[in-house]
Structure formats: C-alpha cells, structure tokens
Simulated scan of single mutants.
Amino acid sequence: MKTILLKISVLTFIVLFSTNSYQIKNRDDQEFQGQAIYISKSKMELGNWGARLSEEQKKQIEARMKNRLEKEYILNFNKEESIFYEDEKLDAISGATDSWGKNFAPGKQYKNVKINSQIQSQEFYGKQFLVKDQLQAIKWNLGSETKEIGKYTCFKATASIPTKELTWYNFSWDRLRNVNEKKADSNGVKIENTKPIDFTEVEAWYTPQIPVGHGPLEYWGLPGLILEVSAGNTTMLCSKIILNPAEKAEIEAPAKGKIVTKKEYQNTVVEKMQEFRNNRGRRRG
C-alpha cells in the first residue's frame, strides 16, 4: 500500500511540475526551443594488459587518450524534435586528431519522438551513411529519488538495455568473433552460435521542469529532459541549458549518405573489419 501511495505522489509531483512548466513558458509548440550542453567522461579500460602497467604508465596513456575519454556534445531540441552532435571545436583548438576513433563515434543524430524516428549521419572509412530506423525502445523504471542538477530538480530512472543496441555505431573484435563462430545442426548445416545477450544497466536523471522526451545519444522517452545519464564506463552530464534562445538553431535531419538501417550498418562495419583483418593476415604471411 505504501509503495502504491509513493508512486502516486511521485506521478502527481511530475504532473504538477510539467503543468507549471507549460504555464511558465506559455509558448506555442513550434516556437519553444532549447539547447543543452553535455560533458561526456569515460573511464579507461585496459583489461588484463593494464594490470601489468604502473600507475605512471596508466596516467601517460590516459593523457594521450584524453580526446577520446572526454568530449562535449550539443543537443538542440523543441517539443518533438532534437538534433545531437559532438562539439568538435575542442579537438580543433587542441590540435588532437583521432581518425581511427572517428570511424566508430556517433555522428549527428536527429530524433522525432512524435513519429518514433531516428536518422543518424555516419562516416565509415570515407563513405557516408544515413542510418534511418526507429528510436531505441527503452522500458524505463521511474523512481522517487531526486537530486539537484544546476537549478533543476531531477528524478532518477533506470533501465536495462541490450548493449549492442546502445553501441550499434561502434565495433568490437568480440562482435566479429561472434559472427565467425558457427556450429553445425543435426544435418551438418552451420548456424550462428547463439550466446546470451549482454545488457547495460542505465541510470538517468531527468527534470519535469523541462517537459520534453529528449536526451543525449540513444536515450529518450522520459517525462522530462535527461540531464545526466550513466551507462557502462561513461557518464554524460548536462553543464548548461538555454531555453528559448534569441537565435533559433536549425533542427533538421541529416540528408546525405547511403540509406541503411542500424542492423545493415552494423553488418557493413563487421564485413569491412573482417576484410581488414584478412588483408593484414595476408601481409604477415
């Protein structure tokens, strides 16, 4: 009974917060717009190899990889649409380049929460792709825990999401091994070796004071803008919000590139990396 009352009180608070937010803004849906700046920080994972390194060596590697481990992103949004992209000015200022990493980084991402659509621009080894698909389905568990992020009151939400759905634009050699590992059925026909699905536990903090269903990367669908999200070894934190800026940003879907789905794009990446490994093996031979 206490649990039910707690959920009712939380939902009531969210509804009241959302209603007040709409009244305060008093703007037409088409006019309302906002911008959120996110700082992304990832912990370095060196695996078994890292265990053999000294703390000084680890610090040196972390310093060299700073442009991969720390990034800044921009999210422009209105009531229905958003455009999310990396602010590459920081790399330009530092002079840092990461041509290999850019092949597996998220490109400019457009979401439309009204029609459940996502369009993302991806460049892979000099070829441009336009990845069109539905938004990642997320079953959020809304909690009652709150905290302040800047001047906004945020609520906690959690979810368990298949890891490959969160990192579909990325690549790991494990993915290639999974594709190559086959087993034969009773008729001797080789089939894919099915393995348990890996899930990533996600913790998000959203504010009903900005009642839009947007968030960074694949995250969306909460009753308020997501200001912080932690998944795996990465945390993204909103450092600045501008509501109804004097100069409106263009929120338009990317339009250039070969049109593919997320799965088709994943297959393209795996095939290219298989070709890369085969060619490297032949050179060694």
Rank of each mutant, 00 (worst) to 15 (best):
L11N: 15
E250L: 08
T268D: 04
S230A: 14
F13K: 15
K127W: 01
T19P: 09
K89M: 06
I83S: 04
N26Y: 07
A253E: 01
G126A: 02
E31R: 06
R280H: 14
Q33T: 09
P106L: 07
N112Y: 05
F124R: 08
E228M: 08
N278W: 13
Q23H: 08
E218I: 02
P245K: 00
L176V: 03
E247S: 06
A204F: 02
V269E: 06
G107N: 06
W205V: 02
N180E: 12
N193T: 14
N233S: 13
N278I: 08
N244R: 01
Q57E: 14
F84M: 02
I39T: 08
E123H: 09
A63Y: 12
S144Y: 10
W173Q: 05
N193K: 14
R283F: 12
M1E: 12
Q33D: 01
K127F: 06
D28E: 05
E56G: 13
D185N: 15
E228K: 06
P208I: 04
Q30E: 03
K102W: 08
P223H: 04
K89A: 09
P254N: 02
E218R: 05
N193I: 07
Q33P: 02
P162M: 05
H214N: 03
T200H: 06
K240Q: 03
K2C: 13
E264T: 03
S172G: 06
M273T: 12
I8G: 11
P211W: 02
L130W: 06
Q35V: 13
A157P: 08
A96S: 14
Q23A: 09
C238R: 05
E56V: 15
D133Y: 04
A96H: 11
I8D: 15
T153F: 12
G224D: 05
G126Y: 04
S160K: 15
N193Q: 12
I24S: 11
L243Y: 08
P254Q: 02
E271A: 15
V260M: 05
Y219H: 04
Y85P: 03
T146H: 10
G224Q: 03
V15W: 14
S18E: 13
V269D: 05
L176K: 03
G150M: 13
V10D: 12
S99K: 14
P106K: 08
D174G: 09
M1L: 10
K248I: 07
F155E: 09
D174K: 11
A253D: 01
E56S: 14
P216C: 10
K59D: 15
E80Q: 10
I115T: 10
R175S: 03
N233D: 10
L243V: 07
K89W: 07
L166D: 00
E228C: 00
I115C: 04
K41N: 06
Q109V: 11
V189H: 13
R175D: 01
D87H: 00
D198Y: 02
S18G: 10
T207A: 04
G285Q: 10
T167G: 00
G232L: 01
N244P: 06
L16K: 15
S239H: 05
S117P: 01
F155C: 09
N233V: 11
S82D: 05
Q122P: 01
S99W: 11
C154T: 15
Y125K: 13
